[in-house]
């Protein structure tokens, strides 16, 4: 668990559940399980989904590991697995395939559309041979305050998280950046009247 490390990095988002308290657990469980991480789907070079925060690789998602402190906290892990192939290997195999194509057709240049198709086929076929590289990121949803803590500050991971969260819960997690945080305190009208200041 990244959250109990001696040093953590995180970004916050605002999201309030759209159901009543009594229905929270059944609603959230349904949303989470629909997008739970599934191991080894053949033909997929990239997978992501929710996993158990305590043991993301081995323990299945269970209600008692997700809902902590009563119904106050939802704890999950965003698990991403990607079959990565080095660019130089893709380049090498594309060159071999393009050469074979030219020989077969008796031409000296491969058309752009064919080049693109060859590259896609090479990428797909090499990805199948590569081992998926796993990465995991803890997520705590504080239901009482309506704030999500995602334990990553990478813009790529944040983008993946926002997409998966929206698909799962039908709620867009609004990043708590200076503007949105200020708006929550003063309202947007007050912010329309301010512009960058010069102090010096």
């Amino acid at each position: 668990m990244g959250i109990i490390s001696s040093s953590v990095s995180y970004a916050c988002f605002r999201a309030a559940p759209t159901v009543l308290n009594g229905e929270l657990i059944s609603w959230a469980m349904e949303c989470i399980l629909e997008y739970a991480f599934t191991d080894e789907v053949e033909g997929i070079s990239r997978q992501l989904g929710w996993a158990n925060i305590f043991e993301p690789f081995s323990r299945p998602l269970a209600r008692e590991d997700i809902f902590l402190n009563g119904e106050e906290v939802i704890a999950l892990c965003l698990r991403i697995e990607e079959r990565k192939v080095a660019k130089s290997i893709i380049k090498k195999h594309c060159a071999i395939e393009q050469e074979a194509y030219m020989t077969e057709k008796g031409i000296k240049k491969v058309p752009r559309a064919v080049k693109k198709r060859i590259r896609e086929q090479v990428e797909f076929s090499l990805a199948q041979k590569a081992m998926p590289v796993p990465s995991t990121y803890d997520m705590i949803w504080d239901i009482i305050d309506g704030i999500i803590y995602l334990f990553s500050t990478s813009s790529r991971v944040i983008g993946e998280f926002q997409g998966l969260f929206k698909r799962s819960f039908s709620i867009y997690p609004e990043p708590l950046i200076p503007y949105t945080l200020a708006k929550s305190e003063t309202g947007s009208e007050a912010l329309k009247n301010i512009s960058p200041e010069v102090f010096a």
């Binding site: 953590v8 970004a11 500050t153």
Partner: peptide
Amino acid sequence: ISADTFDISSLK
């Protein structure tokens, strides 16, 4: 603290 996003890094 990053001023543009309010991301918190290396919290100890």
